[in-house]
């Protein structure tokens, strides 16, 4: 195999484009599948085999934006299967706490007990799940694996003002009932278990209606039920690259600007059209629908450049969700490695 500098890629620009990018055309997506065969580019002097040092050199993570609940970052130099594995782990394999058992003592509202129980389960609980154990089936509840919330709401008409009190049962009415030494598990006031938001409506009540419920939270993962998923969603997209031919000028340039619903293009002072905001592109292909433009506008995506966005439900920070996902991923790899070793020996 020819051992050339590998970071520059293949010298033939057409081939290099095929190797690194996914192309969008009117008729569909081209080169969606990458070429992983190690000797695929040997004849043009490029070593396509996997190399750990090269991976370490090229791999990058940059945070694009981070707010209280959402993290957007780019991950460069990784294969789609691994990026996808991380995404799936974030959605379905990171444990959180959620209401699982609902003991209804009284419910005179119009919402049926089982519907109400289901609604309660979906409320995100803000508590660090790493402080708890998984509940073992057919075992008693313990302080280490269960959190108890009480929901006791009575809707009434104020006898003086005539105003209706507690017209809506809200998530803030869920009151944590500490058992045993659970108080000591949360020394800080802000770490105490509570619903993530205070104003999630649980149900509407009319005067005279009451609900009296005990909720038991358990720790589990999103694969069991989506209520345990720590993310609203975790997704990724590929980095868009849009290039416009020099031949588009004047009238045609304005036409192209009009076509794009996301206003991706700008006209430079020289009259040349450039894709000024490629990240806004939704890949709607409106700009290449006219065959005249298809020749001159190229919409591509970089195959190994992922833009992740992780929106947390609140139990864990988005950042922590990603870190936990990597830990779980490493654990999974270890299991595979172990079983392979067993086979070999």
């Amino acid at each position: 195999m020819v051992n050339k500098s590998t970071t520059n890629g293949v010298s033939d620009p057409n081939l290099e484009n095929k190797r690194t990018k996914v192309t969008l055309t009117n008729s569909g997506v081209e080169n969606a599948r990458g070429t992983y065969y190690s000797g695929a580019y040997t004849s043009v002097g490029y070593d396509n085999s996997f190399n750990l040092n090269r991976f370490k050199e090229n791999f990058k993570i940059n945070i694009l934006s981070e707010s209280a609940n959402e993290l957007v970052f780019e991950m460069i130099g990784i294969d789609a299967p691994i990026a996808n594995a991380l995404r799936r782990i974030m959605i379905s394999e990171i444990p959180t706490m959620a209401i699982e058992k609902v003991y209804i003592i009284n419910n005179t509202s119009i919402l049926q007990d089982e519907v109400l129980a289901h609604r309660l389960g979906m409320i995100p609980i803000k508590v660090d799940p790493r402080k708890f154990n998984f509940k073992l089936p057919n075992k008693e509840y313990t302080a280490e694996d269960t959190l108890i919330f009480q929901l006791k709401v009575k809707c009434e008409k104020d006898s003086v003002t005539g105003k209706i009190i507690n017209e809506t049962a809200l998530s803030k009415h869920l009151i944590w009932v500490p058992t045993q030494d659970q108080e000591e598990m949360f020394p800080n006031e802000e770490d105490r278990p509570r619903p993530m938001e205070d104003d999630i409506p649980i149900m509407k009540l009319r005067p005279g209606q009451v609900i009296d419920i005990q909720c038991y939270c358990e720790k589990n993962i999103g694969r069991e039920h989506i209520k345990w998923s720590p993310v609203c969603t975790a997704s990724y997209r590929l980095q868009p690259v849009i290039s416009v031919d020099k031949s588009i000028k004047g009238d045609k340039a304005n036409q192209l600007l009009e076509k794009c619903p996301k206003k991706v293009f700008d006209i430079e002072d020289s009259g040349q059209v450039v894709a000024a905001r490629p990240l806004d592109c939704t890949m709607c292909r409106e700009c290449i629908r006219d065959p005249e433009f298809e020749q001159n506008v190229k919409i591509e995506r970089v195959r190994d450049h992922f833009i992740f966005s992780i929106e947390s439900t609140g139990a864990l920070k988005s950042r922590e969700i990603f870190q936990e996902a990597i830990k779980i991923f490493i654990e999974k790899c270890n299991i595979v490695e172990e079983s392979i070793n067993k086979l070999v020996n």
């Binding site: 959620a98 209401i99 699982e100 058992k101 609902v102 003991y103 209804i104 003592i105 009284n106 419910n107 005179t108 007990d113 089982e114 129980a117 289901h118 309660l120 389960g121 979906m122 005990q214 909720c215 039920h225 209520k227």
Partner: peptide
């Protein structure tokens, strides 16, 4: 009338 006993449900 509804029972005055506690009823267990699964929140699913």
């Amino acid at each position: 009338k509804r029972t005055d006993k506690m009823i267990q449900f699964e929140a699913r």
